[in-house]
Design a protein around this nucleic acid. Structure first.
Lengths: 191, 191, 191, 191
DNA sequence: GATGAATGAGCCTTCATTCAT
DNA sequence: CATGAATGAAGGCTCATTCAT
């Protein structure tokens, strides 16, 4: 019954918040946002239904939290490159991108689950768009340096292709989609 | 007071079914399947809630109807080509594909809304997969004829790229996504 | 297209009415009154839903029709005896009663289905009670002639016992209830 | 503002569950299972519709609860006899049985309401059959000890007679059925 | 912070009955 | 008489959210 230090309490709080986020991410991506009840999230995170609302003020708020949480994980894993100069760097960046997707399938499943849901569209843009635009810029710079006449369009094409490949991989499951080969092909075409 | 011919009645029935399908397609794609109530579909199609069930025996059945309805529209618009031999034919096929997407944005919005929804995944595969696989085969043949060493992977890459471009276009809206230029780039890369 | 005589038409009408009654009896007794839809009755009798209401003005009206129909069948089969004088007659009457039940199991299943449903209680009394009371009187007379001090109570006991045996037989199914032996016992006790 | 003990809370919960059970028992027996809405049960128990489902997970589950509740009440009232040896004991057991029925008319009305309902037949058997079979065995032992040649059939006859008498008494209402006299007659015949 | 009973709106679906043809 | 599309009320059930403890 000894009093905990504030830091310890803060830590515990974060732990519980994290637990909720992980549970929500998993359940949202497995069953979809609409088919996941707050109840089931509460149970999985071993938090009472009421207490959930002390951490997130609504289901949508929790979703936003999950998206930020996922994005942060991705950022960490991401190969932080300010610019791409050589084919090797380009190739490396692309491969790193798919490695990241492979190690965050759950999150990306949720991503594609939500991407076309108008209800979360605004939220979505707020959280993801800036991140993506910066990513496209990175490639744009590379293509420009290679003398591409329309580096912007090429970069967008690349980005869209990556998106499409990821979607296919996530949807069909790792065993059914020959990710390796397709990515090789992608690199050859764009490098 | 003259009695309608059976054909006329049949026509009326089809009209109403069509009305329901159109309403459902629009609402599903605008608000998502889970967030669209049968009530709202009934109101929009000017049909009583109960009567809806004379046309479709459940909400899922209606969704299946909508998917088939959309797929049929697409098939009609589709450039029916049994094989692709020249760059011109290839280019034409790709462009025709995006023209089709542009004239069925509503449907494609629904498509991307559903593609990652676990609950409708099975239904989804049943309706779309066969169609898509055939499409990929078409390109595979073209790449093989061009001497591509891994035509299968290339075709899948192309398919995924098309998917990604469509997703981007549908999500960002026609004004924000430079579809024309991206498609030009795509053709140049793969032709 | 030759005109039918009125009698023929009347005949057809009766046939269709009969068909409806038979279907309703079967379905009501199999699935219960509340769980049988007018639709299913219409289908089984090959009559349109709308036309059903030309023969019976409501579902309850149809039920009443079914009860009368069943009761008439029973009356026909019943051993019409104005009085019982000997043990043989008594024994015969009892056995005839159970023979009748065995050949109308469907109807009796419906009977016990409804007997405690307050909603149809009034209807019930109207149709059945007079019939039963007369039946009890028959036995009362026999017991009185035998010198029973309380023939009324004995007759009611016998009636109730018959009721209970029938209920058991109908509910447990012919194979699980040793009707023969129980009836033998009943006759021995009361004759 | 003093916190309630867990036991108090548990008590309150039981009270509410009891309230629901009593309401359901009454309504089911008055209007039948199928004609009683969860709404009406909620109103009568002064519980919100939604909360009902915190106590019973479905309407059928509630019915099962009601049946067990009723059966337990009966068991308590029941004269617990492991065996019957004398006429006095026999007579006492029979009378006790009908006393029990008289003090639980509501429950027995429900019983006869359900006994022939195909939809709840399985549930029914699960809850009641074991109880009844044991009861019949009790009488079988008595008849055997008296030298009855077919004690099994006699016991079943007695059981069916009791069933029939109860049905008559419950259906016709206490004032219209001369229970006392009929039971006296029953005892005389079987003792 | 923590609990979970309680609320009430909303959802999908069924069905007796009506009515235009 | 015959048809079956149409209606609208009602039913069972779920669930995000609140609140007393």
């Amino acid at each position: 019954m000894s009093p905990r230090t504030e830091k310890q309490i803060e830590k515990l709080k974060q732990d519980k918040e994290l637990l909720i986020l992980e549970s929500a991410l998993l359940l949202f991506s497995e069953k979809g946002f609409g088919n996941t009840s707050m109840q089931s999230i509460a149970i999985r995170s071993k938090v009472s239904k009421g207490n959930l609302y002390n951490y997130f003020k609504s289901k949508e708020d929790l979703l936003e939290g999950v998206l930020h949480y996922g994005l942060n994980q991705i950022k960490e894993l991401f190969y932080e490159q300010s610019s791409i100069h050589t084919e090797e760097e380009f190739s490396y960046t692309i491969r790193a991108n798919f490695e990241m997707i492979k190690s965050n399938e759950t999150f990306w499943k949720l991503y594609y689950n939500l991407v076309a849901q108008p209800k979360v569209y605004a939220l979505f843009n707020k959280v993801f768009l800036p991140f993506f635009e910066q990513y496209i810029k990175l490639f744009e710079g590379y293509f420009k340096s290679k003398g591409d006449e329309k580096p912007e369009a090429t970069a967008l094409l690349l980005g869209s292709s990556i998106d499409g490949i990821s979607l296919g991989y996530i949807m069909m499951g790792g065993d059914n989609y020959p990710l390796e080969e397709v990515v090789n092909r992608l690199i050859e075409k764009f490098k």
